[in-house]
Amino acid sequence: MRRWFYIASMGLLLLAGCKKNDPNAVKPVTPVSFTQPAGWPQPVYNFADNPLTEQGIALGKKLFYDGRLSKDGQFPCASCHQQDAAFGTFAHDLSHGFNNSHTLRNAPPLQNLAWYSEFHHDGGITHLDLQPLAPITNPVEMAETIDNVLNKLRADAVYRSMFTAAFGSEEINTKRMTQALSQFMLTMVSANSKYDKVMRGEATFNLPESLGYDIFKQKCASCHKEPLFTDLSYRNTGIPMDAVLQDKGRMRITQNPADSLKFRVPSLRNIMVSSYYGHDGRFFDVYQVLEHYNSGIINGPTTDPLVKNKIPLSNFEKGQLVAFLSALTDSAFLKNKKLAQP
Score class of each variant (00 low, 15 high):
residue 197 K to D: 14
residue 254 T to Y: 02
residue 273 V to F: 08
residue 247 D to N: 05
residue 233 S to V: 07
residue 294 N to Q: 10
residue 180 A to V: 05
residue 284 F to Y: 12
residue 181 L to Y: 06
residue 208 P to A: 13
residue 217 K to C: 07
residue 218 Q to F: 15
residue 252 R to T: 06
residue 178 T to I: 04
residue 225 K to C: 11
residue 184 F to S: 02
residue 230 T to K: 03
residue 284 F to H: 13
residue 187 T to N: 15
residue 251 M to G: 04
residue 184 F to C: 03
residue 212 G to E: 02
residue 261 L to T: 00
residue 237 T to R: 15
residue 205 F to L: 04
residue 266 P to Y: 03
residue 192 N to C: 09
residue 286 V to L: 15
residue 196 D to T: 06
residue 228 L to I: 06
residue 257 P to W: 01
residue 211 L to V: 09
residue 177 M to C: 10
residue 219 K to I: 07
residue 250 R to A: 08
residue 186 L to H: 04
residue 269 R to V: 05
residue 201 G to F: 15
residue 281 G to W: 06
residue 200 R to I: 10
residue 257 P to A: 00
residue 264 R to P: 00
residue 277 Y to S: 02
residue 193 S to T: 12
residue 281 G to I: 06
residue 231 D to R: 00
residue 247 D to G: 00
residue 181 L to Q: 04
residue 265 V to A: 05
residue 237 T to M: 14
residue 176 R to V: 11
residue 249 G to H: 05
residue 292 H to C: 06
residue 226 E to P: 09
residue 194 K to N: 13
residue 190 S to L: 06
residue 243 A to I: 12
residue 284 F to C: 05
residue 296 G to N: 10
residue 276 Y to N: 14
residue 260 S to P: 00
residue 259 D to R: 00
residue 289 V to Q: 03
residue 212 G to R: 01
residue 254 T to K: 01
residue 284 F to W: 11
residue 246 Q to R: 11
residue 223 C to W: 05
residue 254 T to S: 07
residue 234 Y to A: 03
residue 243 A to N: 09
residue 191 A to R: 09
residue 245 L to K: 10
residue 190 S to E: 03
residue 231 D to W: 00
residue 257 P to N: 02
residue 196 D to M: 09
residue 210 S to K: 13
residue 262 K to I: 00
residue 268 L to R: 02
residue 264 R to I: 07
residue 284 F to Q: 13
residue 284 F to G: 07
residue 224 H to E: 03
residue 260 S to L: 00
residue 265 V to F: 00
residue 237 T to L: 15
